[in-house]
């Protein structure tokens, strides 16, 4: 447990912290988190991913490490290493409540205070290996307990890089995202930029791009609120397929090399890096 005014213990060796937020569920926070993490790893950074979606953690599956477990060392919890550091790539490690659950179908039915306690523990008792260049925090939808808890803990971890806001193009989603932006303002999270996900679908039969959820909502939103716009990611069924077919031999990060979304996400990550946010340490 962290005490007032102290940097949460797990964050002492973290250079940059990014949050991935969205008011609405199912817009692709976890998929944006996954891809952003891989893009940073490909640039040689050591990346840690923290999944604080306690009631619906999907990152273990996204990275194909569902059956792994968190180990316990004397210093605290050791995250699951998804990809070790290589000559060209940085390392990627993950911590998620998903690892602590017995079976993939058991539910975590927790009320707020318990979730808050768990998030605190994630920020104080996890020992990230070495120095992390980036810690990406994936959040559940909404603006409630988890968000208040993470905001409270991060208050002592300034400066943060800030939040990446994910939306889909339709009005229903941007309406919720506005709420999330207001939340960020209230708790003092800077907004790194807005990403519009599921922006159009390329028909594999005729290559015609259809806007399932219309298009342009994210860009309009960022213009209106004067926020940086990071770009739009179309729906690519092949990415979902990659997530589902990855294995120890065919790692997602290798499959992703051929994904059409890769250059798009890399472009977004470059825009984030160009903001040259000061490192925490």
């Amino acid at each position: 447990m962290t005490s007032e005014g102290q940097v949460p213990r797990s964050l002492s060796n973290v250079r940059h912290i990014l949050l991935v937020l969205s008011g609405k569920g199912g817009v692709g926070k976890s998929s944006v988190t996954t891809q952003t993490a891989m893009a940073l790893v490909n640039k040689g950074f050591n990346v840690g991913v923290l999944d604080i979606d306690l009631t619906g953690p999907s990152l273990p599956r996204m990275f194909g490490v569902e059956l792994h477990q968190i180990h316990q060392s004397r210093a605290g919890w050791v995250p699951v290493t998804v990809y070790p550091r290589t000559e060209t790539r940085g390392s990627l490690s993950l911590i998620s409540l998903g690892f602590l659950l017995g079976s993939r179908s058991s539910s975590v039915v927790w009320r707020g205070p318990k979730k808050t306690a768990m998030i605190r523990q994630f920020l104080s008792d996890v020992v990230w290996t070495g120095t992390l260049d980036y810690l990406i925090i994936d959040t559940p939808p909404g603006t409630s307990d988890e968000h208040i808890a993470i905001a409270e803990e991060l208050r002592w971890a300034q400066p943060l890089d800030g939040a990446i806001i994910v939306t889909t193009p339709q009005q229903v989603a941007t309406a919720d995202v506005r709420k999330e932006i207001n939340f960020c303002k209230k708790v003092g999270f800077e907004i790194v930029g807005v990403v519009e996900n599921m922006s159009g679908f390329i028909c594999p039969h005729c290559a015609e791009c259809t806007n399932i959820f219309l298009s342009g909502g994210g860009e309009a939103l960022s213009k209106q609120l004067d926020l940086p716009y990071l770009g739009n990611i179309p729906i690519d069924p092949r990415f979902v397929e990659m997530v589902e077919t990855q294995s120890d031999e065919n790692k997602l990060i290798d499959l992703y090399e051929k994904c059409e979304l890769k250059p798009i996400v890399e472009g977004m990550v470059t825009k984030v890096l160009e903001q040259n946010k000061p490192a925490r340490i």
């Binding site: 659950l101 017995g102 975590v108 039915v109 318990k114 605190r120 523990q121 104080s124």
Partner: peptide, 26 residues
């Protein structure tokens, strides 16, 4: 799973099997 994992700090925490709110605080 969790039962075998010793907790590093004394935060009251257990994967919930008691669902409907009992009136016993954590």
């Amino acid at each position: 799973m969790l039962a075998t994992l010793p907790l590093p700090s004394p935060v009251p925490f257990a994967v919930s099997s008691e669902i409907l709110p009992t009136t016993v605080p954590d």
